[in-house]
Simulated scan of single mutants.
Amino acid sequence: MTATTTETTTHDRILDAIRRHTASENPSSFLALNSGNSVFTVPGADGAVVYRRTGRWAVQFGGPFAAEEDYGTLLNAFRAHVRGEGLNLVGVQLQRTDAERYAGRGFTVNQVGASWAVSLDGFTLRGTKFMQLRNKISRAHRNGLTIHEADAADVGEAIATIDRAWLGSKGGAQQLEFLVGQIGGAAQAHRRLFVGTIDGAPVAYISYSPVYGSRAGWMHDLSRRIPEGSPGLMEAINAHAVEVFRTEGVEWLHFGFTPFTGLDAAHELDGHSAAFQWLMHALWAEGAALYPAQTQLSYKQKWAPDVTIPEYVAFDGPQASLPGFAHIFRACNAF
Rank of each mutant, 00 (worst) to 15 (best):
A58R: 01
W57I: 01
D70G: 02
P27R: 14
D46V: 07
Q60D: 15
N37A: 04
R56L: 04
P43S: 08
P27H: 09
A66N: 00
F30E: 06
S38V: 14
G55N: 05
V39Q: 08
G63D: 00
D70Q: 13
V42T: 02
S35Q: 03
G36C: 09
A48F: 09
T54D: 11
W57F: 09
P43M: 06
R52W: 01
R53L: 04
P64L: 12
A32I: 07
W57A: 09
G36F: 08
S29H: 03
N34Y: 05
E69L: 07
A45L: 14
S38W: 15
R52C: 01
S35G: 13
A58E: 07
S35Y: 10
T41W: 07
P43D: 14
V39R: 12
F61E: 03
S38T: 15
R53M: 10
E68V: 13
G36N: 02
W57D: 08
V42A: 07
G44Y: 11
W57K: 14
N26R: 00
P27C: 08
R52V: 05
A32L: 11
Q60K: 12
A32T: 07
A67G: 03
V39Y: 01
E69H: 04
Y71R: 00
V50D: 08
S38A: 13
E69M: 07
V59N: 13
F30H: 07
V59F: 10
Y51Q: 02
T54V: 07
T54K: 12
Y71S: 00
P43L: 14
L31D: 14
N26M: 03
F30D: 10
A58S: 06
L31T: 08
L33M: 14
R56E: 12
E69W: 14
N26L: 01
R52T: 10
L33A: 12
G55A: 02
V39P: 03
G36I: 15
A66L: 00
L33P: 14
G55M: 05
S38Y: 11
P64G: 05
S28G: 15
G55C: 11
S38H: 11
V49M: 15
F61Y: 13
G62E: 13
V49S: 10
P43A: 09
T41G: 05
Q60P: 15
N37K: 10
G44T: 04
N37I: 03
S28Y: 09
G47R: 00
G63F: 02
D70R: 00
R56Y: 02
E69G: 10
G47Y: 00
V39F: 08
T41M: 03
D46Q: 12
A45D: 12
Y51M: 06
R53V: 13
S29E: 09
S35E: 11
L31N: 04
P64I: 01
F61K: 15
G62N: 03
A67V: 03
A66I: 02
A48H: 06
P64R: 05
N37M: 08
A66T: 00
Q60N: 14
V50H: 05
E68K: 15
E68S: 05
Q60Y: 13
F40I: 06
T41K: 15
N37G: 06
R52F: 02
A32Y: 09
G55V: 00
F61I: 02
T54N: 04
V50Q: 06
P27G: 10
A66S: 06
A67Q: 14
